[in-house]
Every structure is written in structure tokens, then in C-alpha cells.
Simulated assay, not measured.
Amino acid sequence: MTDHSADADHSAEQSLRTEQSLRIAFSPCPNDTFVFDAWAHGRVQGAPAIDVTFADIDLTNGMAERGELDILKVSYAVLPWVLEEYTLLPCGGALGRGCGPLVLTRESGVDLTGKTVAVPSERSTAYLLFRLWAAEVVPGGVGEIVVLPFHEIMPAVRDGKVDAGLVIHEARFTYQEYGLHSLADMGEHWETTTGLPIPLGAIIAKRSLGEERLRELAQVIRSSVRQAWDAPEVSRPYVLAHSQEMDPAVADQHIGLYVNEFTADLGEDGYAAVRGLLTRAAAEGLVPAVGAGALSFP
């Protein structure tokens, strides 16, 4: 005989856990799964449960603009549109040096004037860095901008569907496999002109969670990062399960490049990079201006 009351109790318990879980979205890329593995699998003591959604950056940026989830990995470029509802957490994101987006073409030395360019998101930091670069280097202006999931961009360039592609993540290590050329490095341009690290992906959380909870979440993320660093082999199954058949060596390169000291704490240089990006972009009329205290963490 089936114990329906036990089933009901179990269902109620599961429902309660789901209701209490914080809803979080981040990409299936190795740096994100590496960072959040310990938290997602209940290995951070005292951390709240999380209900994870995997989504590419264009989707998470849209979720943030609609205020759909509690915690999100988004582009720094989307912050001016979401900081009223979300706060920037001082950890968990992606900044660094030598890790910027690349503009790829089938032939070297292509003039992008009037050309079609595929980008991962019109709200992405990659696209914002591209627009700042193009304003200086392509005075005639590029042509049509096409938004594609980042893993579709290199095949589209290779197959001639677009003239150029703006790529992120592990494409830095794999674009030559597609027979493509790097026309320009947006990160190199940014670092040369500013001296600052490259701000790419941010972790944001709803202000409505309250200052105490937000501070707790920052500590949870830092603990999850430290556990991943201390025992990287533990996160490996989670990383490889979501890395879209990526070569494990490439996944390791990806993590090594994007998970660094800024992931544990933005610090003075990290905040300077974020402020610099948004201030420069606002001056060019590319994003709304951000108030002086908008980036402050509780």
C-alpha cells in the first residue's frame, strides 16, 4: 500500500524548499559553473538554497531589465538600466587583463565600414567596448549589427553569414580552428587607453533582499570561489557537464583567465574599471549616466 501521507509530506517539503530558494541565473560557461559549483551543490555552510537557471548573457541581461530573478550574472554594460532594482555585488564576476573580446573575420585586415557584425548581446560589455573602439577606428561606421548566441558567432563568420563577429569566452583559444583571424582585441584597446582591467560580467542581486542578506550573499560567493580554488577537481564534473562538449584543456584555460583576484573581490582597481567604462560610455551617449553612489555596496 502506498503511503500517500508520506508522499504529501515530501511534496510539501520540496515545495517549501523551492519557495525559499533564491532564483539565480548564470551562463553554462566554465568560469560561472566553477564559481558557483560549491554553492549550487550545498557545500557552502549556511548558504541559502538556489534554484539555478542556465542562460546566455543576452538572456540574463533581459531578465535583469525585467527584474525576473533574485541574482544574475549580467554584462557590466547593462548596469545603467538595472541599478534601481539591483545592486552590484563586489565578487563573483569576471574582470581581468588580457581577456577582452575579439573581433574576428575570415580574412585579415578587413575594413569594417558598412559591414555586418554579429555580437552576443546589444547590452553586453563586449558590444559596448566594441562601440567605443569602432568610434575611433571605424569612422565611417559599421553596418548591420546581428545578435547571435555566442557559440553561433564563429560558425556564422566562417560560413560568410556575417562579415565579422565579436566573440567572448573560450573563443580566444579556439577561433583559429574555424580558420578565422583576429582583427582587433577590444581588451587590449581598453587596457592601452585606460590602464584598467577589463570589466566583463557582473553579479547583481535584488536590493529588496535587504542589506544584511546582500552582505551574506557576497560572503557565500567568496566562500564558493575559495572552495573551487582549493579543490578544483571537485567542481570539474559540474564544469564539464555544462561546457557544451568543450575540450577540458580549453575549459581550464577559460577558468584560469576569467576567475582571478577580481572574482574574489572587485577591489579599488575593479571598481575603477567599472566606473571608467560606464562614465566613458555615458559621455559618448551610449548608456544613461550612473549616479555617484549607484555602484556602492551595502
Rank of each mutant, 00 (worst) to 15 (best):
T87K: 11
A264M: 15
D252P: 00
R158P: 10
L95Y: 03
P120Y: 12
V82Q: 00
S124V: 15
V274E: 02
G46H: 11
V138D: 07
T194K: 01
D56V: 07
V119A: 03
E216Y: 10
S182A: 13
V250I: 15
V117E: 02
L59F: 08
G92A: 05
F54M: 07
R213I: 06
A294R: 11
I204G: 07
R158D: 07
G179D: 13
N260A: 13
P30L: 02
F297V: 11
K206R: 05
T53S: 07
V82C: 10
S124D: 09
P288D: 03
A281M: 09
E177D: 07
E212R: 14
L95H: 06
D58T: 00
E144L: 03
G143I: 05
G276F: 00
W39D: 11
G140T: 00
G179I: 15
F26K: 12
A184N: 10
E13Q: 02
R226N: 08
Q253P: 04
L16H: 09
S235W: 02
A156V: 15
V117S: 04
D32L: 12
R97I: 15
Y76V: 03
A25T: 05
F262D: 02
L240A: 01
L209A: 04
D159G: 02
T193C: 04
V52R: 05
S21R: 08
E144Y: 04
E68F: 06
Y258L: 06
F54L: 14
V52M: 01
V35Y: 11
E19V: 13
Q219G: 14
D185R: 09
A218H: 02
R17N: 09
I203C: 05
P90C: 06
R43I: 02
A171L: 13
L22E: 03
I168F: 01
L88I: 00
D9L: 10
A47I: 14
S182I: 01
M154R: 14
